[in-house]
Each structure stands twice: as C-alpha cells, then as structure tokens.
Design a protein around this nucleic acid. Structure first.
Length: 330
DNA sequence: GGATCCTTCTTCTTCTTC
C-alpha cells in the first residue's frame, strides 16, 4: 500500500511540469508505483515542499474550500464588501410558545387527523414560505458546497442526466410522503409490502419501527401560518412520538444521517413550523418538540432525531435570524 | 386551462497508520 510518507518520498511536486498538471492528473500520478530504491527524487528536500504536498493532497479533486476561495478572491480583487450575514442571535424576540394555557396536552381529542389546506387567499403570494426563506438565506458555505456538488454531478451525469436524477429524488420523496400519509390516516398500520410501489417499499420498511412509536396523529400535511412574523408552511405531521407531542418531518436520504448535524437546515424548518403552529388559531394546542425521521431506500432502520424543547428554542432563534435576514434582503 | 405556490432533494474532506 502507499503510505503518506511514500507519497512524499515519490514527491511528484518537485517536477516542474507537474505544476502545470491539473489536480486530477496530479492525483492520478501519485498512485504510480513508487520505486523503493534509487529514486530520482530521493535527494528532494521534502520538508521544504511538505506544505505544498499537503495542500495538493488535501483533496482528491480540488483543494478549494470556501476559505481558500475567499482568500484567493481577496488577494485578486481586494477585500469584499459583504452583505450582512445572519448573526447567531435575532435582533427582536418573538415567543416560540403563545398561550400557555393550551400548552402541551393538546386536549383529549382523538378524532381523525386534520388536514388544513394552504389558503393563500388573503395574504396572497406575498407571504413567503419556510422553504423559500431557508433556500434564500443559505450561508455562503452552504452555497459553495451545494454548487460544487451540482457541478460534480453534472460532470458525471451530464446536464440531462442530472435533471433526471434530481427529478427522481423528488419523485421518491413525494411518493414516500403520500405513502406515510396513507399509513397514518389508516391508524398507523402499514399495508402489505406488495401494495406499495417498489420505489417506496424500502423507505416504508425503514420507518416501520418509528411508526410503532407514534400515536394520536393530530395533523397531516397541514398548513401553518404565523400572522405576526408573516410566513407560511406545510407541516408534514403532528403526532405523539413515544408519548411526546411533536411536529414531525419525514425525509428520504441517499446517505446515512445518523446525527442531527447531518440534517443541515431540517431542524430549523421543524422549529419554524412549530412556532407558526403555536401562533395559529387553527390549532388549539401548542407543540414544544420536534422529530426528524430520515428514511433509507434499502430499508435499513430510519434515524429518528428528537428535538426536545430546549433545542427547539435554539433552532427557533436561528430561524428568527434567517427570517430577519430574508426580510432585510428583500 | 394556465400559472404559481409548497414541497419533494442536494452540502459537511481531513488525516497519514496498519
């Protein structure tokens, strides 16, 4: 095998023509067999070039990161006059919970779940949605990594292939959502496997253990609106998970997401829905907790990330800063 | 009927040993 030391030893960086190679070519040449003795590079001052080797070796495809790009840009174009990015604390405080008298229990109603349709009648299209706001207030780093991912995918699949791939991801997500909806409205019981299309079978198997922990489904695909803060959204589900009332978001994912930190802005989305629901007169109860369920196509057990009330409050603050940022930008 | 909306997804990478 090739150890790092050996790569340094083969020391391709010292060859001037290597400098003109693309990083791709460079990474290909690093895997050339390394002669153990009498190497023409053995006299190389490897210490002197170690940082260069390190920087080139630090990425298979590109050593660029948001930081290096920023530094590079500043060097070439001078310092950037940057748009204000969201701070960690919102400027104005808005309560996450509203009327404390209706807190938690959510009453004793055990009827069928509600499904409040989105009514854009009065507010019109001017009321922005949670996904729109999150999409438009991504951090520079998020934009960088998403762009890079897209670029690489297009290189691999071509423009058309990438379009099809994206559409397939969306279609799977939608099918999965409606299958879960179906299962929840029929009392939490999944149908027999055969009754689902192959596209969603694995995902449903993946979440089956979480459905067992679900009870008292109160709302499904239901619109929420924050009158004061002026935003809308559609919450996937409100139900009890292991006895705790939660706003629940179902996600499908190609990659495993075992940690909450793997879910990017999903917790902010859940907190935004919960905060809106708590202020929305259509709902006669308050929800303090959240749940993100990440389902996998191969049927492996879904990851269920619980957002307890303290954490929800933190994400609520993050949401408020994103919302402020969005409103300032407009 | 057409247009628009909400949502559906996508990021996280560096280190150098056996």
């Amino acid at each position: 095998m090739f150890s790092f030391k050996r790569v340094v030893y083969t020391g391709r960086v010292i060859v001037p023509q290597c400098a003109s190679l693309s990083v791709n070519n460079f990474s290909a040449c690093q895997f050339l067999p390394s002669p153990k003795r009498h190497s023409p590079y053995s006299s190389v001052d490897s210490e002197r070039y170690s940082s260069l080797v390190k920087s080139v070796m630090s990425s298979k495809v590109s050593s660029q990161t948001p930081e290096t790009l920023k530094a590079e840009d500043e060097h070439i174009f001078g310092p950037v006059v940057r748009e204000q990015t969201p701070s960690s604390e919102p400027k104005t405080f808005h309560p996450f919970l509203q009327h404390k008298d209706t807190l938690e229990t959510g009453g004793d109603s055990r009827g069928p779940p509600v499904r409040i349709p989105l009514n854009r009648g009065q507010g019109g299209a001017s009321v922005p949605s949670v996904t729109r706001i999150l999409q438009q207030t991504l951090s520079p780093d998020q934009i960088f990594y998403l762009d890079r991912w897209k670029r690489r995918m297009i290189e691999k699949l071509g423009e058309e292939g990438f379009e099809q791939y994206s559409q397939a991801l969306f279609r799977q997500g939608k099918l999965f959502h409606s299958a879960v909806e179906d299962a929840l409205t029929s009392g939490g019981a999944l149908k027999r496997k055969k009754e689902y299309t192959p596209e969603v079978r694995g995902y449903l198997e993946s979440i089956s253990h979480t459905l067992e922990d679900m009870s008292e489904v109160k709302a499904i695909e239901s619109a929420v609106q924050h009158q004061k803060l002026n935003y809308i959204g559609i919450a996937d589900c409100v139900a009890r998970y292991r006895g705790v009332l939660c706003v629940i978001d179902w996600k499908t994912s190609e990659k495993p997401k075992p940690f909450l930190s793997n879910t990017f802005d999903n917790p902010i989305q859940v907190a935004a829905y919960a905060g809106a629901l708590n202020s929305d007169a259509n709902y006669k109860y308050q929800v303090e907790n959240g749940l993100i369920v990440v389902a996998y196509k191969d049927g492996s057990p879904a990851h269920a990330h619980r957002l307890k009330s303290e954490l929800m409050l933190e994400y609520w603050n993050t949401w408020l800063t994103r919302l402020e940022y969005y409103n300032e930008k407009r």
